[in-house]
Structure formats: C-alpha cells, structure tokens
C-alpha cells in the first residue's frame, strides 16, 4: 500500500521536545524528543522496561512531564488533564486492555463519542429535540464505526465477553471514536497469532488512510513494526538511542546491542535499580 508522503516542509503535527520524568531515583524517561509529521506512521520500540508506555502516559497526561514541552498542532499540551488532551486530539489504546467491561460494545464506543457533543443536564432530563438528535447521531456514528471494524453484530454484548482479538479491535474503535488527530497504539498485536497480526497490519494502514490519522505505535513484534512503520524511534533505559527508517534501525549497532545484549543487560538493569 502506498502511504501518502509526509509533507516535510510543514510544521510537524506533534512536536515533543525534551520531556522527562523520574520516579524517585529512577529516570524513567529522559530528554525524549519526537516530531510526528501529519499522516505519518511512526514506531516506538525498545526492550522491556525501556519506558515506552511511560512516554505514552506522558503524552496523554496520565503523568505530568517534569521537563520539556509537547505541542500538538500549535497547542501546548503539557500540564493539561487527560480529558483535555483527548479533546485536543490525542487518543490512545492501552497495553493491558482497559475496556468498560460491564458496558455493551456499543456503549463503549458511545462513551468515546461523548467528547464531541455538548451535554447540558437540562437537555438530558427534558429530552429536548437537540439532545435526542445528538444522541441519535452519536449512536449512528458508533454503529458505523463498529460496522467498519466488523464488530457490528456484537454491539449488544458486554465488552468483557468479547474474544481477545475483538477486545483489542474495540479498543482501537473506541480511540478513533474520539475523533483524534493522533492515535497512540500501545502493543496492539500483543497476544495475537501471525494471521491476526497480518490483519492488524492492514487494519492500521487502513485506519491511517481512511481517517487521515497520524499514528504512533508501540510494538514488540519486529516483523509488524518493520513492515508498516515509516520511521522508528528506539528507546532504551528511557533514552532515545536511534531514530530513523526501519532499515537504518535494523543496522544500527546500538539497537542491536540493546536487544541482543538480552539476558546480561537485563541482569545489569536489575542490580542497577
């Protein structure tokens, strides 16, 4: 599939510069910078415990960065609350699936649609035509999205009763329903078999093209990352060790050392901590 070439002359959609956070003595992420051009598909990889999910948590406001700045489309995001960041156009999925288990599949998506509506208490209680119309539009949109991801026939099931693959997919649908500019996917392929991973790769590309999204992807499956990402950032011990195209990353000695250092490196980490 041919991806639209990111326009390098325009300012990047997401501009992260020098964000950092430490927990006590542990410097989880240091001096993390990243420029995401509009429509790009970027990978974020690194060994376990490298700080990838922490970066996501910093970007989405779950943690507050202790230094640096985050700018999305000219809007400064640092210091905003998670829901404000979601409103600004940054949406995410979770590594450990965080669906609203006791709500139906449809309601999971409708919660996310909530963001782009107005909700006066009076309108809700009096069921004004405006409220009813909005509610209907929201349901319609949620159904369309579910249909697009072939989840339409499961819309009335409790989210916790879906099979694992569907739950992962529903997380993505839910994130897209907030109408984001940037989608952060945290290990979407975890626990999937090769066929499912193949389907997921296609899905991610389709999402990007169809919704005009910019995607930042954390993934451990190198095959998937190398296949779909245009650029890859490699993180180790909270520091960026390489930023480049898949080919550059694959041949970079630092990256190979970080990964193939494997067992001995991990032991070293534990004692250091």
């Amino acid at each position: 599939m041919t991806a639209p070439a990111p326009n390098s002359s325009a300012a990047p959609l997401l501009d992260v510069s020098g964000i950092a956070i430490s927990f006590g003595g542990l410097k989880a992420v240091q001096n993390f910078s990243l420029q995401l051009p509009r429509g790009s598909l970027q990978g974020l990889i690194g060994p376990n415990g490298a700080g990838k999910t922490t970066v996501f948590n910093l970007l989405t406001g779950v943690y507050q960065p202790q230094a640096g700045s985050i700018t999305l489309d000219g809007q400064a995001l640092r210091g905003l609350k998670p829901h404000q960041i979601a409103a600004a156009g940054l949406s995410r999925t979770f590594q450990n699936i965080r669906l609203f288990g006791d709500l139906s599949v449809l309601d999971n998506v409708r919660v996310a649609c909530h963001l782009r509506g107005s909700h006066s208490l009076a309108g809700t209680l009096l069921r004004t035509p405006r409220y009813v119309g909005q509610e209907r539009a929201m349901t319609e949109r949620a159904r369309e999205l579910l249909a697009l991801f072939s989840l339409a026939d499961r819309q009335d099931e409790h989210a916790c009763n879906l099979p694992y693959g569907d739950q992962r997919r529903l997380e993505i649908v839910r994130a897209i329903a907030t109408e984001p500019k940037i989608l952060l996917l945290d290990e979407p392929a975890a626990g999937m078999n090769p066929q499912e991973k193949k389907a997921l790769a296609d899905l991610i590309r389709t999402i990007r093209d169809r919704f005009g999204l910019t995607i930042l992807l954390i993934e451990h499956d190198m095959g998937l990352v190398m296949e779909i990402c245009e650029r890859i950032t490699v993180l180790d011990y909270g520091i960026i060790i390489k930023n480049g195209t898949p080919r550059e990353v694959q041949t970079c000695p630092d990256v190979i050392a970080a990964y193939l250092g494997g067992a001995s490196e991990m032991k070293g980490t534990e004692t250091r901590r």
Binding site: P82, H83, L103, H114, H119
Partner: peptide, 30 residues
C-alpha cells in the same frame, strides 16, 4: 432513568468501569 440512558449516564458508568480509560476517552472525570 433518563440520566442513565443518556451520554452523561454512560460517562458516569465509564468512570465506574475504568477511570483511567474514561479520562483517556475525554470524560472529565472530576
């Protein structure tokens, strides 16, 4: 009842289900 069946009601329920995910979906939890 009207509250529960509305989008505000779903926002309430999503907080009960998972506060962090609820925030990430743009629900002003506070």
């Amino acid at each position: 009842y009207r509250l529960k069946m509305s989008s505000s009601g779903r926002a309430f329920l999503s907080i009960r289900e998972d506060e962090i995910a609820s925030q990430a979906m743009g629900v002003n939890v506070t």
